[in-house]
């Protein structure tokens, strides 16, 4: 994986983003919508893997970050400029993640998974209650949303930023610290890493993108309610995509988000139940026989080539 330097990888990302930015004028509306979904999930999965892939933490908080961003948009749509709403959505999620992280990042494994899931649900039910009791609404309509092209470019920009950030983190001391934490946290401490600080920092950084993406996607959906934007499925699907792709890599989650979005879009509409049965089966087979994710296929292929 280290055959490309950091600069090469960033250049490649920016080049890909540049090509993709022309799509609104080249694609049909349907294809563009599909690309948008791909980009969104790629952004979510790459940010998830940025923290969880390296540290072996299992966070189910993506839905919480996404929903918070969406509600920043929903509540601020009339007063905030579009770009500002997206930025604030990301910042809100990052601040939330820092606070939560400081409190719960000492927990590991299943405990951490359950508590991050619980936190998302807590925020969702809290907002539901607040909206019903004080605002008298169930959901909110976003009036006067920006054009689809603008939203597409925002999501593309955010996803590209997430990839570049992930690349930079991986090459940095923070990335090394996170890998050490994932391997043996106490050992990392005895070698001088302030593990708590590193984890809170990275967790917070990885929350910015889902928050900002949530804020942008809320504009696209134009009607949001707590169940749709805090949908636990967003969190689950992100974890699935990242792990199926290979959570310790960056290219893996991107590839698998494309695969997932295509499968979902094409099959779900035609065979809703059968599709999910097949998806379930596929998932089980992948975990059992390709536990390193799609990325390990690439590794194997390279390994084979280098030995030949």
């Amino acid at each position: 994986m280290s055959r490309f330097t950091l600069r090469d990888s960033i250049l490649a990302t920016l080049l890909a983003a540049l090509v993709l930015s022309a799509m609104p004028w080249l694609m049909s509306d349907f294809a563009l919508a599909l690309t948008l979904t791909c980009l969104m999930y790629a952004g979510l999965a790459v940010s998830w893997a940025m923290f969880c892939g390296a540290t072996n933490y299992l966070s189910l908080a993506t839905a919480a970050f996404f929903g918070m961003g969406a509600y920043v948009t929903a509540w601020g749509a009339e007063t905030l400029a579009y770009g500002l709403a997206v930025l604030l959505g990301g910042l809100a999620a990052a601040v939330f993640a820092a606070l939560v992280g400081a409190a719960v990042l000492h927990l590991r494994g299943a405990y951490f998974a359950v508590i991050t899931f619980g936190l998302g649900e807590l925020v969702r039910h809290g907002i539901t209650y607040y909206e019903k009791a004080y605002a008298g609404t169930v959901g909110r309509v976003i009036s006067d949303p920006p054009e689809t092209v603008t939203i597409y470019h925002t999501v593309l920009l955010l996803t590209a930023l997430a990839v570049v950030t992930a690349l930079a983190v991986r090459a940095s001391r923070l990335g090394l610290a996170l890998r050490g934490i994932g391997s043996d946290e106490e050992r990392a401490r005895t070698l001088g890493v302030d593990t708590r600080r590193a984890k809170v920092l990275a967790f917070s950084l990885s929350a910015f993108f889902p928050g900002a993406l949530g804020a942008a996607m809320a504009m696209r959906w134009t009607y949001i309610d707590p169940l749709s934007v805090f949908n636990p499925f967003i969190g689950f699907q992100t974890v699935l995509i990242a792990m199926v792709g290979g959570a310790h890599t960056i290219l893996g989650p991107i590839a698998s988000s494309v695969l997932f979005s295509l499968l979902t879009e094409y099959l779900r509409l035609q065979f809703p139940y059968l599709f999910l049965v097949i998806l379930g089966l596929l998932l089980i087979l992948l975990v059992l026989y390709l536990p390193g994710g799609l990325a390990s296929l690439l590794d194997r292929w390279r390994w084979g080539k280098s030995r030949a």
Partner: peptide, 12 residues
């Protein structure tokens, strides 16, 4: 992850 797979499979 396998649990998720089973969830999709059995429920649907």
């Amino acid at each position: 992850l396998v649990g998720f797979g089973l969830l999709f499979l059995v429920q649907n």
